[in-house]
Design a protein around this nucleic acid. Structure first.
Lengths: 255, 255
DNA sequence: GCAGTGCGTTCCACTGAGCCGAACACACGC
DNA sequence: GCGTGTGTTCGGCTCAGTGGAACGCACTGC
């Protein structure tokens, strides 16, 4: 999903290519850099960029272009993600207060996890996740729990592609991963022991809105002091409460 | 800023008109409804919408169209808002734990406040603010503190336009508001007593990144039990720490 | 000094992507 | 049946969008 292809001929396609040229830790990109990344002809790109600036998708700075604040605002209006967030945040806080470790909320998009929120005090540099960022499904607790409850097709798609190694403990063989996913699907909890980054471990549970798994919530901590299985029940409880609140809310809206 | 005008003739203009047709509490909109809101010819709009769906700006559902999850992701990559968020969240948590009241983080956009984040436990239905939502500057603590530190031009623009009344206590006269803004600019704190919604009061402080006011942080509570002036120093401290962290971070990046 | 390199910007003749009115298809309620 | 609300398709016109090429400018380093 990261190497998404857009139609070069259409305006919208170009716009999306530009937007996706920004990775999560680019703040500003120059025209030349954008030409390199998108391989759109310089003249055309220049015009597209100025157009995007006038509609406030991009901000112009001395150093180049950056994603505009109005995008943030629009993103927050995306209904699914927003209502999930609004409902989940209080429960994430509870979990944080109880554990004092980093709490994540993530959804599945394509074959990757997208993090909707991440809270956890000041000392949390360790985890490589970022809000709005992506991580692979096969080596994160949230990813595994989402994959375990996803439909067969997606599961097989992930299992049949190579599973990139991130640490010595990353599961890179389809066989072991498959059996683990089966167990996760059965017990509705996933664990990660230094599979995405050395030094961190994680517990995750699925958030279900009337049978559909719409997201997953997790607690992450440093391996030396954090015991995932001690927090199984709190994480599960939080996930279930979020699901219940979502269901209550959407049944209200339906009237 | 809400009634932004876009160029009808250009593709991007139409796209933005569609995106902005979604208000904060629309989840899905039908083609017909979008025709009404944007007054783009039906045939054209239909094509634009399907284009937007193929680039994943919109999701198609049985009921109509809704803002896609990829927008959320893009929005989160908007550098300014994102780094502000990442830095601010831990301090907002501190403030929440200390006060157990709703904590807001907002920035100025045009003549309105946009909320970047809002945390606070389960019982917080009261405040009308929403993440990614907007509120007027003249009747919120965050708004007033941002306006007080904004440049003269903006300040006069707001003061010369009519100030809509939200509650009996909303300040609708330019004179009193001006003197209050002067005081706020001097003491770097703003208060709100049921000016945007009855029953809630608020304290806010400016977040300054090396002299520039980039955002504001506030604590909001119900008027019957919450005394804003009791929390002045914690709010100010949080704002200053956020500012200091931002400055430290950006000086690191500069190398 | 002056060639070399990388950047942003402007220009302009060409062309097909985008335009939109009109016709069509379907599902309702009365 | 007939009106009214949806969403979808069609096709000929045309101007918005295209991109190669040339330009200006700020830097190197020699």
């Amino acid at each position: 999903m990261s190497d998404q292809e857009f139609d070069r001929t259409t305006v919208l396609g170009k716009v999306m290519m530009v937007l996706h040229a920004f990775t999560i830790d680019d703040s500003t990109l120059s025209l030349a850099e954008l030409v390199r990344r998108t391989s759109i002809p310089k003249g055309t790109l220049h015009r597209v960029l100025t157009d995007m600036v006038t509609v406030r998708m991009l901000d112009r700075t001395d150093a180049g272009y950056r994603l505009g604040g109005s995008l943030f605002e629009l993103g927050m209006r995306a209904s699914v993600e927003r209502s999930l967030l609004e409902v989940a945040i209080p429960f994430m806080e509870d979990l944080y207060v109880r554990t004092h470790e980093t709490v994540h909320l993530g959804v599945l998009d394509g074959t990757e996890v997208v993090y909707l929120s991440k809270i956890g005090g000041h000392r949390q540099a360790s985890a490589p996740s970022r809000i709005g960022g992506r991580m692979p499904v096969h080596c994160t607790a949230i990813g595994k729990v989402l994959l375990a409850h996803a439909d067969k097709a997606l599961r097989e798609q992930v299992l049949s592609a190579p599973l990139p190694r991130y640490t010595p403990r990353t599961i890179i063989l389809p066989g072991p991963l498959r059996t683990q996913l089966d167990r996760i699907a059965a017990e509705r909890m996933a664990y990660e022991y230094e599979e995405s980054a050395t030094g961190i471990v994680c517990v995750a549970a699925p958030v279900r809105e009337s049978e559909d798994v719409v997201a997953a919530i997790s607690v992450t901590g440093p391996s030396h002091r954090f015991r995932p299985d001690n927090h199984t029940s709190s994480v599960r409880a939080a996930a279930e409460e979020i699901g219940a609140t979502l269901a209550r809310r959407s049944s209200l809206l339906r009237k």
